[in-house]
Computed example of a mutant assay.
Amino acid sequence: MSKSYVVEVENLTKTFSGKEVIKQCDMHVTEGTIYGFLGANGAGKTTVFKLLSGLLTPTMGEVYVLGKEVSSQRHSILAEIGTLIETPLFYEHLSATENLKIHLAYMAKDHGDIASVLSKVGLPHTGAQPVSEFSLGMRQRLAIARAIIHQPRLLILDEPVNGLDPVGIREMRELFLDLVINEQMTILISSHILSEMEQVADEIGVIVDGQIIEEVPLSSIQQQFPNGLEPYFFDLMSGGK
């Protein structure tokens, strides 16, 4: 495991019912950066995230997160990562604050500035309101709050701005950049909103049919494709590279 990589994956393969859904993937996420993970629906992004988080076990290959092998050291990694993968689940009858308190206890963290984090994600005055009354956008904000409340070193975020309006998307963009710059987090993020990826990502990884086919600095893409990520992405999808 290279010291500069927070995530390092070699020859990662995952098979379900005899079918390879992740195929010999290599991935490298540099410490202190935002890695934008792109791919069409069904390409394997969420499965990769679950493998990195220890929610799934690889069929083959090596997965290192924060210098530790995930399959054998998952429990020692958990408190150092924050995740938002698929639809977030909460204790519906409890408030946002109570949900975050439970998460901190689960992570064995005896501190966490819940009020500050709720303010950062745009939920400063939810009080005793139960999560069952939250809108889709509010639930997504709470999921992001839960991912960062224990101050992880690595965030793994699968479509984190789903359900947010344009104002909310901009607020989360600013939050992600702040977390990297001021709280020394590293972020691995997937999104279908390519324009958002252009504004936050340092590196881009692209997965096609279960295989990561390219990892490249965003600056290199911008030099070759001055009109942005969209022409780059569709060029890859069409086999142009």
Rank of each mutant, 00 (worst) to 15 (best):
M138K: 11
Y91M: 12
E171F: 09
Y64K: 11
K50L: 01
G210Q: 07
L179G: 04
E198H: 01
M185N: 08
Q223L: 14
T126Y: 11
L157R: 08
I156W: 10
E92Q: 10
S4P: 00
V208M: 04
L66A: 03
S2T: 12
R146C: 03
G137W: 10
L188E: 09
P152G: 09
E133A: 11
V29G: 03
V117A: 09
A105H: 09
I221A: 01
P217Y: 09
E214Q: 09
N41I: 10
K120V: 03
L175K: 04
E80M: 05
P226E: 13
V6I: 15
N162A: 03
A115K: 15
S17M: 13
T30W: 02
L188M: 15
E159Y: 00
V180R: 12
P130V: 08
D113R: 09
F234I: 09
A40H: 13
A43N: 06
E133G: 01
L104K: 06
K23A: 02
M60G: 13
M172K: 02
I181Y: 02
P231Q: 04
F16C: 01
M60F: 15
H125D: 10
I102D: 05
G32D: 05
L236Y: 04
I34W: 13
K241C: 12
A79Y: 00
L89P: 00
P231V: 07
V167K: 13
S2I: 08
S4K: 13
A105P: 01
S4R: 08
A96P: 06
F16V: 15
V180L: 08
P124K: 06
I221T: 05
S116T: 14
S95G: 07
V121H: 04
E133H: 13
Q211W: 03
H28A: 03
V117S: 09
A115Y: 06
E69N: 11
I212D: 01
M107P: 00
N41T: 12
K68E: 12
V48R: 06
Q129C: 06
I85F: 05
A201Q: 08
E10S: 14
I181C: 01
K241I: 15
T97G: 06
F16W: 06
L179N: 00
P217T: 11
R170F: 07
G42F: 09
V70N: 08
S238L: 09
L229I: 07
H103I: 15
T186V: 11
S119L: 12
Q223S: 13
L118D: 04
L179I: 07
G42D: 06
T47F: 01
G228P: 07
R173G: 07
L56N: 02
Q211K: 15
P130N: 06
I81V: 14
A40M: 14
L155Q: 08
D165T: 14
H150A: 07
Q223G: 06
V6G: 01
G36W: 12
G36V: 10
V216L: 12
K3G: 11
